[in-house]
C-alpha cells in the first residue's frame, strides 16, 4: 500500500528535524545566548508537534509557559551573570566526554530498543475522549475534577517556589547604603589623599551617526577621557580608541562652521593662510600622529565596527 502522506506526517518530519537540529545547537554552541535561542526553537517545534497530536491546549501552554516565561527567566539570568561569557570547550574531567557520549548513546539505543519492542498499533485518537466538549474544556474537567488535589498541590508548589526564589536571590546588604553626604565626604577625601577627581565621571561621547556608548568623550584639549566609558566595555575591547576617528567629526564640523562664517563675513580667498592655525588643525595633527603610531588598534576597531 502506498503510504498516505498526511498533514501530521508532514508536520512531524519538518518539526522533528528542526527540533533535533536545535537541540544539538543547544548542546554544542559556545555562547549561552545561542543555546537559549536554540532551546526556544526546540520548544516551539515541540509545541507544533503537540498541535499535530491533537493537543491544542498544550500547544498554547508550551509557547506561553516555556518560550514565554521560562525562556525569559533564562535570558534574564544570563544577563545577570554575563551575557556573552564564552565557555571554554576544553574538558577538564578526564574521560567525561567519552563517558557522556557512550552513556547517552547507550541510553538512546536502549530506548529505541524498548520502543521498537513495544508494538504500537494504530493510535486510538482523541476524538472519543474529547467528545463534544473540545480539548480545553475536557482538560478542565479533568484538572478540576479527578486531578484537583494534584492541581492544588502544584499551586502551592508554585507559590513556594516564588517565595524561595525571592528569598534566595535577595542579596543581604553587607554595609550601610552610602548616602549623599557620605559620598561627598568620601570623594573629597579621596581627592585630598589620592588626587582622584571629585567630580562625576564624564559622559561618553555621543554622535549622531552612532548613538553609541563605546565612544569615549574628548576633553577640551582633545585628549580622550578614559573615565567616560563603562569599564565593562573597555575590558571587552569594543571601545573606540582611535582618536582620529573620534575627532574626525569635530574637524568636519569645525571646517564647515568656518566655511559658513567665511562666507558670511566675506573673507577673501587666501586670507585663511595668514591666520593662526586653529584648534581644530592642532587636533587633526595630533590625531594623524596617533593613527600612525597604532595601526593595529585601528584595524581592530574597524573590524568591530563592521
Amino acid at each position: 500500500m502506498i503510504p498516505l502522506l498526511t498533514a501530521q506526517a508532514v508536520a512531524f518530519w519538518v518539526f522533528a528535524v528542526l527540533a533535533v537540529a536545535a537541540a544539538l545547537g543547544l548542546v554544542l554552541s559556545r555562547k549561552p545566548v545561542h543555546s537559549a535561542l536554540c532551546l526556544a526553537a526546540v520548544m516551539v517545534c515541540l509545541a507544533c508537534l503537540y498541535a499535530s497530536l491533537d493537543a491544542p491546549f498544550l500547544f498554547v501552554a508550551q509557547i506561553i509557559v516555556y518560550t514565554g516565561a521560562v525562556m525569559m527567566l533564562f535570558v534574564f539570568t544570563m544577563m545577570i551573570i554575563g551575557v556573552d561569557s564564552v565557555d571554554a570547550m576544553v574538558e577538564t574531567i578526564k574521560g567525561q566526554r567519552i563517558a557522556a557520549t557512550i552513556g547517552a548513546a547507550a541510553l538512546l539505543v536502549l530506548l529505541v530498543l524498548a520502543v521498537g519492542h513495544g508494538i504500537i498499533t494504530e493510535p486510538a485518537g482523541l476524538d472519543e475522549a474529547v467528545g463534544q466538549a473540545g480539548n480545553v474544556r475536557s482538560l478542565a474537567y479533568l484538572v478540576f475534577g479527578r486531578y484537583v488535589f494534584a492541581f492544588e498541590a502544584t499551586a502551592a508548589l508554585l507559590i513556594t517556589a516564588a517565595l524561595a526564589a525571592m528569598v534566595l536571590s535577595h542579596g543581604e546588604r553587607l554595609r550601610k547604603k552610602e548616602r549623599q553626604k557620605a559620598r561627598a565626604a568620601r570623594r573629597t577625601r579621596e581627592y585630598a589623599e589620592q588626587g582622584v577627581d571629585p567630580a562625576p565621571l564624564p559622559n561618553p561621547g555621543v554622535y549622531a551617526r552612532h548613538n553609541s556608548a563605546d565612544h569615549p568623550a574628548l576633553l577640551p584639549d582633545g585628549s580622550v577621557a578614559e573615565g567616560s566609558v563603562v569599564p565593562t566595555l573597555a575590558a571587552r575591547g569594543v571601545v573606540v580608541v582611535d582618536r582620529g576617528r573620534l575627532v574626525a567629526p569635530n574637524i568636519v564640523a569645525d571646517e564647515t562652521i568656518r566655511a559658513v562664517k567665511d562666507e558670511q563675513h566675506g573673507l577673501l580667498p587666501g586670507e585663511n593662510e595668514l591666520r593662526d592655525p586653529g584648534p581644530a588643525a592642532a587636533i587633526a595633527a595630533a590625531a594623524d600622529s596617533e593613527a600612525a603610531s597604532g595601526p593595529a588598534e585601528a584595524g581592530e576597531n574597524e573590524e568591530d565596527e563592521r
Binding site: I93, Q96, A99, A100, G103, A106, L107, A114
Partner: peptide
Amino acid sequence: YVRTYGALMTCGAVIVG
C-alpha cells in the same frame, strides 16, 4: 563534580533498563 554524578546515574539507568 555534578557532571560525573550525572554520568554515573546514566550508567546506572542504562544498566537497570
